[in-house]
């Protein structure tokens, strides 16, 4: 798992067709800082996005915030479970509450991001 400065986690996996997929969620630290999440708006699928694009809107009891695409790629799947049950983001941010999957040409694209130790240094 890799981590961004925007408190996202990125995990590489293989798609059913063997393509390279990056799964994106937010860290436990981010979920705690946001507070109780009450609304999640997911992106459309089969859409190309660029790194830095706002792709997900999260509203907590406190405020709205955006999740940015961490890399360039195609959104191939979104997790409708978090839209139906936004509280999942607080319950299981690193597991069930992933937000979207992106298809990438080269999974090594996430090597540029922090590993767990580096991320823990960032938030400590």
């Amino acid at each position: 798992m890799k981590y961004t400065e925007d408190h996202e986690w990125l995990r590489a996996e293989k798609g059913e067709d063997g393509s390279d997929i990056i799964v994106v969620g937010i860290t436990e630290h981010a979920a705690t800082q946001l507070g109780d999440v009450v609304f999640v708006e997911l992106p459309d699928i089969d859409v190309m996005v660029a790194s830095g694009d706002e792709v997900v809107v999260i509203e907590s009891v406190k405020a709205a915030s955006d999740i940015l695409a961490p890399i360039d790629g195609e959104i191939v799947e979104v997790n409708t479970k978090v839209a139906d049950n936004p509280g999942l983001v607080n319950e299981d941010p690193l597991g069930d509450a992933w937000f979207f999957k992106m298809k990438v040409d080269d999974p090594a694209v996430i090597d540029q991001f922090m590993d767990e130790d580096e991320y823990n240094d960032l938030i400590s």
Binding site: G35, D36, V38, K62, G87, N90
Partner: peptide, 9 residues
């Protein structure tokens, strides 16, 4: 205090 550990909800 804006919230305690239980959280706003």
């Amino acid at each position: 205090p804006v919230q305690y550990p239980a959280g706003v909800l």
